[in-house]
Computed example of a mutant assay.
Amino acid sequence: MANRTNQLLVPQARAALEQLKFEVAQELGIQLPQDGYYGHMTTRDMGSIGGLITRRLVQIAEQQLAGRR
């Protein structure tokens, strides 16, 4: 496993983030390696996946904040 420097504030969220990564990649038509090694992935593909994940997380946060008012 790769050395991860980013630590999740909620460690239980790791599985949900992994699932989101696979869903986003599938929507974009990008095949993720089954062995978990992303070294052969293009920067463009990984950036597309990361960008869409970020947009989704911001959207979820905005919806939650709107619901609290």
Rank of each mutant, 00 (worst) to 15 (best):
1 M>A: 14
2 A>Q: 08
6 N>Q: 08
6 N>M: 02
6 N>S: 04
8 L>S: 05
8 L>R: 01
8 L>Y: 08
11 P>C: 02
12 Q>M: 05
12 Q>R: 06
12 Q>L: 03
13 A>D: 15
14 R>I: 10
14 R>Y: 12
15 A>K: 05
15 A>G: 04
16 A>P: 07
16 A>L: 12
16 A>N: 11
16 A>Y: 12
18 E>H: 04
18 E>Y: 01
19 Q>V: 13
20 L>W: 00
21 K>T: 15
22 F>E: 13
23 E>S: 03
23 E>T: 09
24 V>L: 05
24 V>Q: 05
25 A>L: 05
26 Q>K: 14
26 Q>M: 07
26 Q>A: 14
27 E>F: 02
28 L>H: 07
28 L>E: 07
28 L>Y: 05
29 G>D: 05
30 I>A: 00
30 I>T: 02
31 Q>K: 11
32 L>K: 03
33 P>E: 00
33 P>G: 00
33 P>M: 00
34 Q>N: 14
37 Y>C: 05
38 Y>Q: 02
38 Y>T: 10
40 H>W: 07
40 H>A: 14
43 T>M: 07
43 T>L: 10
45 D>C: 10
45 D>V: 07
46 M>G: 09
46 M>C: 14
46 M>S: 08
46 M>Q: 14
48 S>H: 07
48 S>T: 01
49 I>Q: 04
50 G>K: 07
50 G>E: 08
51 G>S: 07
51 G>H: 03
51 G>L: 01
52 L>F: 01
53 I>D: 05
55 R>W: 00
55 R>C: 04
55 R>T: 09
55 R>P: 04
56 R>N: 12
57 L>G: 10
58 V>Q: 12
60 I>E: 13
61 A>I: 01
66 A>I: 11
67 G>D: 12
67 G>W: 06
69 R>Y: 08
